[in-house]
Design a binder for these strands. Structure first.
Length: 638
RNA sequence: GCCUCGGUGGCUCAGCUGGCAGAGCGAGUGAUUUGUAAUCACUAGGUCGCGAGUUCAAAUCUCGCCCGAGGCUCCA
């Protein structure tokens, strides 16, 4: 709803002619006048149809506030369609106007100009600073329904502000009562106070982060500087905050991580699908789901329709599941999509580098299981797969586990929860809810804890007991009867960008402790850097490069000193650096610098090739994503 | 969204009691053909985030806005 309020010496109107949507009125209302009144020009918009009651209430609160400020007791409500290009249906608009009139009449002397008439009017604006104000009313836009609290200047700027849908889940989260525990490997469920954290400093940080939410550190996140300096990714000023650009090296790393996730879930039987990034805001099923998911959306206007950008692949996959014919013989049925992108309109203050984005790449897999016991068996399998995934990415010892469930689920599955803790082999943070606020009864996440003691979820699996019903997803059982499957949501790695963030932060931490920062060899944008000493060694370097098959090799053929080239390779975290000069030309043996061990070895191209192949075994390979000769490379950053 | 701090060549930053816009790195050109963390010389490169205001004069002072970082709030 759009409001334009004018504190006027007087306002008077006279109806002239009916429009097709005119309301029937008493003859006494055909003209009207009010002196020293607050005149409110109003346009009721499509958004307001969702909840006319709340819209009227919020608008009334807002108008009262203004009336108090300008100290008037008289209010003229004046329908004014031209304030908006997205008007509500006339019936709804009249309904809301009447409710508004009714509410305000309790405290004020209110008149309402008739809806749907061409009217002549005269108004005299007082002209003091508060005499002209505009307001946009959006349901759920502010917590507590207090109406708009934005400043005047901002209101005018954002007069066409896009709709903010705050889901019921976001609101209910405030009310959710959590009980925090630590479950030990021995199966003891201890309170936070009882548990001895002395051997588990990271778990302690994680618990502090989750429960007290208090952090007092003031450092710039190291990965932000690294992602730029290593030419992986950067902010894109031409887009919205939290939408990154990826340079060739960063893109390569992303593609490799994505490929590994897809290979892994493919091996466990998942089939890959692709679904749209935007959905109809008014689709009845989706609307209900929006309300159960604690996230803010981007919304898009197109013609007369409103769309929201997906924040996961659930929508597309569930809608697909709904239309499928599924037999019990097809279960468990796994579908996966590498969502590029998922969108979540996080608050500004929450966005940080690659850690938390508004557009991010996330594998999203859903598994339809016959029932809860099937779901539990799958959950365990995926839990183990996620552990392996993080180990492959290079984060084996760098995460803390949270397992969250409802009290009901726990009562029935105590041993299962204990088993999960045994599998991961370390104590786990437990969050227990008295009742179910979300669509799931059980979830786990693996959380990375960074140098600033912040926790970020990577892998996660959830057991969903709501959406099969909501999307009307069914399978046919042995006896020909229809059944609701139990659905698992799984992101094996979590957001791909976040994996990169975790790796960079971890390596930064390592360098603080005196180690040499580097990426796992299978992710290194350049795996071998060849440095010819002089121009006459270039040809031999090319030969070596050809011999290193399926390895990302490049050649620093720039006219620089060897010292400078070595330094450059080091700053790029290249794992293997090879100097090629007269000695190598004669002996056929290479002088290889191994970054991780800070040592130099003599080996042939074949030996080096085997070393790298064994290091990257089982991981995807992609060719180098830049010209092989450094002299041909443009600079992306710095 | 709120509070605090910041934004000056491609990058990192100096200049900020108002008075000719600077350095290093990087880039281009030339010389050098080089053996393990920065070869030398020269040249180009700036709407000092954007917009107003104060002033003879604004990168510098004031106000508004945009963007970033940290904190708060929040976090599937």
């Amino acid at each position: 709803m759009q409001l334009l309020s004018i504190h006027s010496d007087y306002i008077e109107y006279e109806t002239k002619k009916k429009t097709p949507v005119a309301e029937e009125i008493e003859p006494t209302l055909k003209s009207g006048r009010m002196d020293d009144a607050l005149t409110i020009f109003i346009a009721v918009e499509t958004y307001d149809e969702a909840d006319p009651g709340a819209t009227a209430e919020n608008a009334a609160a807002e108008i009262k506030k203004t009336a108090e400020q300008v100290k008037t007791s008289r209010i003229m409500l004046y329908p004014y369609a031209h304030l908006s290009s997205d008007l509500a249906k006339p019936t709804v608009a009249v309904d809301i106007l009447k409710r508004l009139e009714e509410t305000l009449s309790i405290d004020y002397n209110v008149k309402r100009a008739p809806f749907g008439w061409y009217k002549a009017f005269k108004i005299s604006c007082k002209g003091h600073p508060l005499s002209e104000l505009s307001r946009t009313i959006r349901i759920g836009g502010e917590k507590g329904g207090e109406g708009s609290e934005r400043s005047e200047g901002r209101d005018q700027k954002e007069g066409r502000k896009t709709e903010e849908v705050v889901s019921e889940a976001l609101k209910s989260e405030e009310k959710a009562v959590s009980h925090w525990h630590v479950l030990t490997q021995e199966g003891e469920l201890l309170s936070i106070e009882e548990f001895d954290f002395s051997d588990h400093p990271n778990l302690k940080k994680f618990v502090a982060y989750e429960t007290s939410k208090s952090r007092a550190v003031d450092k710039i996140p190291p990965h932000v500087e690294l992602m730029k300096r290593l030419e992986l990714a950067d902010y894109e000023p031409g887009s919205d905050s939290g939408n990154m650009r990826f340079y060739p090296k960063g893109t390569l790393i992303k593609r490799l991580l994505e490929a590994h996730v897809m290979n892994t879930v493919g091996e466990m039987g998942a089939v890959e699908v692709e679904t749209p990034v935007m959905y109809d805001m008014n689709h009845p099923t989706l609307k209900k789901y929006l309300d159960r998911f604690p996230a803010r959306q981007y919304s898009i206007e197109s013609d007369k329709r409103s769309f929201f950008l997906r924040f996961a692949a659930c929508f597309g996959q569930f809608l697909m599941n709904h239309d499928m014919t599924i037999s019990h013989r097809n279960l468990p049925l796994k579908m996966v999509e590498m969502t590029r992108y998922s969108f979540r309109r996080e608050q500004h203050g929450e966005l940080v580098g690659l850690r938390r984005l508004r557009a991010f790449t996330m594998p999203d897999m859903h598994t339809l299981c016959s029932d809860m016991s099937g779901a539990i068996a799958e959950f365990k399998e995926q839990y183990v797969m996620c552990m392996r995934m993080l180990a492959d990415v290079g984060l084996e010892d760098d995460y803390e586990v949270a397992i969250r469930f409802t009290r009901d689920f726990y009562e029935e599955n105590r041993d299962f929860i204990k088993e999960l803790v045994e599998i991961v082999g370390k104590p786990v943070l437990i969050e227990l809810w008295d009742s179910r606020f979300f669509y799931f009864v059980l979830k786990f996440e693996f959380n990375y804890i960074d140098a600033m003691n912040k926790a970020s979820a990577l892998s996660t699996v959830q057991i969903d007991v709501e959406n099969a019903d909501r999307y009307d997803i069914k399978y046919i059982d042995r006896n020909g009867g229809e059944n609701r499957p139990t659905i698992l949501h799984c992101s094996p790695s979590g957001a791909i960008e976040r994996c990169i963030y975790a790796l960079l932060e971890r390596e930064h931490l390592k360098s603080l402790e005196g180690g040499v920062p580097s990426l796992p060899t299978w992710l290194a944008p350049t795996q071998v850097r060849l440095i010819p000493v002089a121009e006459r060694h270039l040809e031999y370097a090319e030969e070596i490069a050809r011999a290193l098959d399926r390895i990302r090799v490049d050649i620093d053929d720039r006219e620089e000193t060897v010292g400078k080239k070595v330094r450059a390779a080091g700053r790029e975290w290249v794992p293997y650096t090879v100097i090629i000069g007269d000695r190598e030309l004669e002996s056929g043996v290479l002088s290889v610098n191994i970054r991780s061990d800070k040592v130099k070895v003599e080996e042939t191209a074949q030996e080096l090739s085997r070393r790298i192949s064994s290091e990257t075994a089982g991981m995807p390979y992609r060719r180098i994503n830049l010209p092989m000769h450094l002299s041909e490379r443009a600079i992306f950053f710095g």
